[in-house]
């Protein structure tokens, strides 16, 4: 388990002072894929590099499996690092080595025998699907293939943790998908804990179990990917989730929806294939309210669908309240995002 406690990092340039990280707290469980998302400059790379102490925090504590890394001597720290693989957006392969040697070099540095290296590298190249490219040089590989070499190299020392710094940001969508699939694959096969940073929510959706949203050096929201998607709270999160209802629910729509009675716009999130139709018609009949779907979408989180519906519910004020609590029981997540007051009653003189 990776634990970051009260991590702060301040960079001092000649004149300026940058607070890249401010009091960050994260716990990452063994075997999970943890995502960190944020805009450029949010501090993601700095945070990732703190996990293996490529960057030392100004204050705070970094521990892995209960061991505080900041107290270790260089030698001990190196041993810990051997069990933490890292891959980069720019791959950072050795241009003067072929694919085989790129993977093998770190093994040689650790005095692994020749036969073992041969076997290990072959296995790794097979795992990443590059068994026929062992003699190629990085300059002759595509971006996706380079990243596969990066992954094979990162796995050479049988790490428990894999850190990914924007590993797919330099790749096209199709290649991105194939690399993400590979990451999921090794997470499952090898039980590897993966920490990845990205600015693309798509990456988080496809592979992560939990996610932290970063903004200006702070974590503004964290939780399971399901929670973050079904109920994003912070503005940045909403932005990444693509949950900008201001755009979907316009003033014109609101005035069109305004009736004699007060009404609500609800945001319903439902998981898996649980059908929503029966629930909505049930609500309509048992509480005599009218429901209208204003907007709907389905997102896939690690392959499991999550439906988001915006529903306009109108009717008698008391009945509405009951209807909403009924929905709260039946539906994964219910949030009232707008209350529309009824038209003012015309007063007869």
């Amino acid at each position: 388990m990776i634990e970051l406690k009260n991590i702060s990092k301040t960079f001092h340039d000649r004149k300026t002072k940058v607070d890249a990280l401010k009091n960050i707290n994260i716990e990452i469980n063994e075997g999970e894929i943890f995502g960190i998302i944020g805009f450029s400059g949010a501090g993601k790379s700095t945070l990732l590099r703190i996990i293996n102490l490529l960057e030392e925090p100004t204050s705070g504590e970094v521990s892995i499996n209960g061991r505080n890394l900041l107290t270790l001597k260089e030698r001990e720290l190196r041993n810990v690092r051997k069990k933490i693989g890292i891959i980069f957006q720019q791959f950072h392969l050795l241009s003067s080595y072929n694919v085989f040697d790129n993977v093998a070099e770190i093994l040689r540095m650790n005095g692994v025998s020749k036969q073992e290296i041969n076997k290990k590298v072959k296995d790794l190249l097979l795992l990443v699907g590059l068994e026929d490219k062992a003699n190629q040089y990085p300059a002759n590989l595509s971006g996706g293939q380079k990243q596969r070499v990066g992954i094979a190299r990162a796995l050479a020392m049988d790490p428990d943790i894999l850190l990914c710094d924007e590993a797919t940001s330099a790749l096209d969508p199709k290649t991105t998908d194939s690399i993400l699939k590979l990451l999921l694959d090794i997470n499952k096969k090898l039980g590897l804990t993966i920490v990845l940073i990205t600015h693309e929510m798509d990456v988080i959706k496809k592979v992560c179990d939990r996610v932290a949203v970063m903004e200006k050096g702070e974590i503004v929201e964290q939780g399971t990917v399901l929670d973050i998607f079904s109920n994003p709270v912070q503005e940045t999160t909403n932005h990444f989730v693509g949950n900008v209802y201001e755009n979907m629910i316009t003033e014109e729509m609101l005035s069109a929806l305004r009736g004699d009675d007060p009404s609500y716009i609800l945001r319903l999130a439902f998981r898996g294939d649980s059908a929503l139709d029966p629930v909505l018609s049930e609500v309509a009949s048992s509480y005599s309210v009218t429901s209208n779907i204003v907007h709907g979408s389905i997102t896939y989180l690690k392959g499991t669908p999550l439906g988001i519906l915006f529903v306009h519910l109108s009717g008698d004020a008391d009945k509405l309240k009951q209807a909403i609590s009924y929905l709260e029981e039946k539906v994964y997540r219910v949030e009232v995002i707008r209350e529309i007051s009824g038209k003012p009653k015309e007063v007869l003189v």
């Binding site: 190196r78 041993n79 810990v80 690092r81 890292i86 950072h92 770190i106 850190l163």
Partner: peptide
């Protein structure tokens, strides 16, 4: 950095 990160 890549090699430092891998414990070289």
């Amino acid at each position: 950095e890549a090699y430092r990160g891998m414990g070289a």
